[in-house]
């Protein structure tokens, strides 16, 4: 792991806004930000481990433990909300036996409720592994996720 993290740091050596860029790349590589990676970053950037954790933990998209295979972001911000996000969330929670924020038992999906995906012309929306699905109904939301299983 160390080599990979060092390689990522080297890639961003010349950037001014290093830390976020490094954390993003580390998360892409390992699926989360491992403790050991934070150690390496701290050493290479001459920072304290605590400082890095302090920054990283402020941002809601950085995670510190492994998650499900697929990341499902369900928007429950104002426009999606008035257009029925609550029904979608309820249906997904029933269907996949989780509450928002959790990972399904089989490790396939991690569900998160988010505040505004910026696609309100298609509300209600969700994002699965970075791909946006709009004009959802509870049935369509389930269908889309079942399709990613195959």
């Amino acid at each position: 792991m160390e080599d990979k993290v060092v390689e990522i740091i080297e890639k961003h050596r010349k950037d001014d806004a290093k830390l976020l860029a490094i954390l993003h790349d580390v998360q892409d590589e390992f699926g989360y930000i491992p403790e050991d990676a934070i150690k390496v970053i701290a050493r290479e950037l001459k920072m304290k481990k605590g400082e890095i954790y302090d920054t990283a933990s402020f941002y809601s998209f950085f995670r510190f433990k492994p998650e499900g295979q697929h990341e499902v972001l369900v928007c429950d911000c104002i426009v999606c909300h008035i257009k029925g996000a609550e029904d979608i969330i309820k249906r997904l929670e029933e269907e996949f036996k989780v509450t928002m924020g959790e990972t399904t038992k089989d490790g396939k999906y991690t569900f998160k409720m988010v505040k505004g995906l910026g696609h309100c012309e298609k509300s209600p929306v969700m994002m699965v592994d970075g791909k946006l699905y709009g004009n959802l109904t509870p049935e369509r939301a389930v269908e889309i996720l079942r399709r990613c299983e195959q």
Partner: peptide, 10 residues
Amino acid sequence: IEVVLGAGAY
């Protein structure tokens, strides 16, 4: 120009 990606904070 350097492009910086945020990480989820209004």
